[in-house]
């Protein structure tokens, strides 16, 4: 066995540990770039997240798989470190130290933003589908649902028996939304007043995509993460509840 084989087998066997080193290097490079070229104005974590997305694209390009860089055996540990279990564990941890009063103050606005967020995204997705020539209620609803989040799309699609092509499209719409939220939030934040717990809760309710909100706020101001994440976590559930029922019925008024 030559040294390269040995190295590969060690790195793959200790995937999670490899992922720690890998992410550490990505974060270091990002903060280095941030300091060197923007005097720290362009947040290091924003660069790190974008770098992650670029690497995910490369991973998908090389392997043709669905899990970005994690589909390359070398980097399989990234799938575990960046998977839902560990991510949600860390999100819950950010709630430690949040004051109850802050939550109470923004509670009502947060709940309202959830409903508006789901309906707005659904509406945009449905109208886009219609504009591109879809005229059956099932396809329009499924694409609308996918625009809510990429989980709501397939859940709705399978409930309504949508074609797999439409379901794939709905997932893509949700993914685009999630990635756009990750990338654009740090730039847009100051123009929309996203700088306090209250607006963070509203942001989480409107956008709803867990990964988008988690990464977008992390790159904007980590202190806001728990507030946005809190409302966002109810969004997918609400979407799964409304899209195949109420929203589908609303579409059938206009389309069969």
């Amino acid at each position: 066995m030559n040294f390269l084989d040995l190295l590969e087998s060690v790195l793959v066997k200790n995937g999670l540990i490899t992922a720690f080193v890998f992410v550490g290097v990505v974060v270091w490079v990002s903060y280095f770039l941030s300091d060197k070229f923007s005097d720290g104005k362009f947040h290091g974590s924003a660069i790190a997240i974008m770098l992650g997305l670029v690497l995910a694209y490369l991973g998908g390009f090389i392997t043709g798989g669905k899990n970005g860089l994690a589909d390359i055996t070398f980097f399989s540990g990234i799938g575990l470190l960046g998977g839902a279990m560990i991510r949600d564990f860390a999100i819950v941890a950010t709630a430690y130290g949040v004051r109850l009063e802050e939550l109470k103050k923004a509670g009502a606005a947060g709940i309202l933003s959830l409903f508006i967020g789901v309906i707005l995204s659904f509406f945009v997705g449905a109208v886009t589908a219609i504009a591109f020539g879809y005229s059956d209620a099932v396809s329009i609803t499924t694409i609308g649902a996918g625009t809510v989040t990429f989980v709501v799309g397939p859940v709705t699609g399978s409930a309504l028996n949508a074609s797999s092509e439409v379901v794939a499209l709905s997932i893509a719409a949700g993914l685009i939304k999630s990635i756009l939220v990750m990338v654009t939030t740090p730039f847009v934040a100051k123009y929309v007043g996203l700088n306090n717990p209250r607006s963070a809760m509203i942001f989480g309710g409107l956008m709803g995509t867990n990964s988008g909100v988690a990464a977008g706020l992390a790159a904007t101001d980590p202190k806001l993460v728990p507030y946005g994440a809190m409302t966002a976590t109810f969004y997918t559930g609400l979407g799964c509840l409304m899209a195949p029922s109420l929203l589908y019925l609303a579409v059938t008024i206009f389309y069969v």
Binding site: I78, I171, L175, S178, A218
Partner: peptide, 21 residues
Amino acid sequence: YIPIVVAMAAKQNVMGALDGG
């Protein structure tokens, strides 16, 4: 949390998203 989010970004289906047209 932030490093975990970076790992999460690296495992997104970016290719699939752009394939949606």
